[in-house]
Each structure stands twice: as C-alpha cells, then as structure tokens.
C-alpha cells in the first residue's frame, strides 16, 4: 500500500477523502467491496433459511489444531525474546454480547427492508432521518424522583372532601338519613294513592284524559285500539258502575217512600 493515497497529482491532500490513521492499514478496495460482500453474506443466510434444521445448528469448526501450530518459525523466534508475551494465549481482548453475530444479519436485513420501503417515497427518503426534538439531558436524571414524589407525597384533601368533613359529622349523617327516609316514604305513599298498580298495561287502567291526550292513541286505527282493550277489565268496570247506579236508585226510592218531607228539610 503506497503512502500517497490521500495526495492528488498536484501533491495536495484530497479534500473529502478519508485519511487513514497512522499505523493502521487495510486493503485498497475494502470499503468499495464491503456492500457487495455484505449482500453476498445475506444471500447465503437466506439460502440456509430454507433448511431449518441446518440453519438452527451453530456454524462452528469442529476441528482443532495443536497450540501455536500456525505460528511461523520467524514469529516463534521473535516471541522467544519476550517469554511473558509468548505465554499469553492469542485471542480477541474484547467480548461482544451473547448472540450478537446471530442477530446482526437479521438486523441488517430489517434495515435494508426499511430502506427499500422508504424508497417508494422519494422526497421522504431524501430527508435525513433525525430526531429534531431536543430535551435537557438533566431532565432524565430527575424524572424518577419527580414521579416518586408524586406517588408517595401525602395528598391534601380536595375541596369536596374538606366540605364533607366539615358538614358530614355523625349527627348530620343521621339527620340526613332520616330526611331521606321521610322523603322516600312520602314519595312512595303518594305513588300508592294513584291506585295504579303498575302492572296493568291495558287501556282500561288508564285515566280518561290520559287516553284522550295520548298522541300514540290518536294515530292508532280502530283494530289496534280494540286489541288493546282488556275486555274483562272493562266489563268488570262497567258492571261495578252499573251496580253502583242501581244501588243509588234503590236508596233514593227507599228514602222517597219511607222518609217524611219535613224530616228531610230538618236534616238539611
């Protein structure tokens, strides 16, 4: 790898070009070929998805080689000068979350699907997807205590509660109960005086004025009206009326025959 990859032909540094940190290096076309290699990997993941059992198996090498097998003689010679370093088992010093690599492919696929979905909406896709809202960082430091204050702080009684406490003593409660009981009793007895049992649903049980003023009845035809009449109740009512009329006639006759006119005048 040449040192002048960031220098153009005029010997000036290429402005937008990424400058490699000193001491590190990577293949020339690493970033150019990254996406194609990624898609290739995703393709092979998809291919494996068809074979569920095979896909479920962890993809690991079952074979091992003797320690330091791959160390070249040159390396071995070099390391021999540093026995402390040579005793360290080669490996990665950092660890990643368990299952990270398994989730990575899935997560990349989801990101690609989201990007594809957004492509349909050109203007929207062109906008940088950022959260435009802001909040003071300290806000989250105090939120838990603010919530706990609201949860556990003794609450002052409300206006209604205070009024109830003020007026609703034991004595007033009894008085209020007695008044309520009296009120309900009056309502009940007044209701009983109407003579309406509440179970009768025929015309015979209604007052004459109620029938005459009822808009529903005005709109009914003759046949419907007849259906509504409880013949037995009506007959009983007419018979009672007739009997009372006859009794009154008998009483008048008796009085006319047996009572003297002078006595009658005296009584009046």
């Amino acid at each position: 790898m040449s040192e002048d990859t960031n220098i153009n032909k005029d010997g000036e540094e290429n402005p937008g070009r990424f400058r490699k940190p000193e001491g590190f290096d990577f293949p020339e076309d690493y970033f150019n070929s990254f996406s194609s290699r990624l898609f290739k990997k995703l393709g092979s993941e998809n291919e494996l998805a068809e074979f569920k059992l095979l896909a479920a198996l962890p993809k690991i090498h079952p074979f091992v080689v003797p320690d330091n097998y791959f160390l070249t003689l040159e390396h071995k010679t070099e390391l021999a000068a540093y026995p402390g370093l040579a005793s360290v088992k080669p490996g990665y010093p950092v660890e990643v979350e368990a299952g990270y690599f398994e989730k990575l492919a899935q997560s990349l696929q989801y990101k690609i699907a989201l990007a594809e979905e957004l492509k349909e909406y050109g203007r929207l896709a062109a906008i940088e997807k950022v959260n435009p809202f802001d909040v003071e960082e300290a806000y989250f430091d105090t939120l838990t205590s603010a919530i706990q204050d609201r949860l556990f702080a003794p609450q002052a009684p409300g206006l209604v509660e205070r009024l109830l406490e003020l007026f609703f003593t034991r004595k007033t409660a009894y008085a209020f109960g007695a008044v309520a009981l009296l009120g309900f009793s009056i309502m009940y007895f007044n209701r009983a005086d109407t003579g309406n049992t509440g179970t009768c649903t025929t015309l015979a049980c209604l007052e004459k004025n109620e029938i005459v003023n009822s808009a529903e009845i005005k709109n009914m035809d003759e046949e419907t009206l007849i259906e509504l009449i409880d013949v037995r109740a009506l007959s009983d009512s007419l018979n009672t009326h007739q009997q009372a009329k006859e009794l009154r006639k008998e009483q008048e006759d008796y009085l006319m025959e047996n009572v003297d006119a002078n006595n009658l005048i005296d009584e009046l």
Binding site: L124, P132, F133, D134, E136
Partner: peptide, 15 residues
C-alpha cells in the same frame, strides 16, 4: 415556538 426543537427548515416542514 418550541425552544427545544433543533431541526432545520426541512425537518420543520416534515413535522
């Protein structure tokens, strides 16, 4: 009028 909105003009239009 939100003082905690840090987006640019296009972000405002999107919102």
């Amino acid at each position: 009028s939100d003082t905690y909105f840090k987006g640019d003009e296009i972000q405002m239009k999107l919102q």
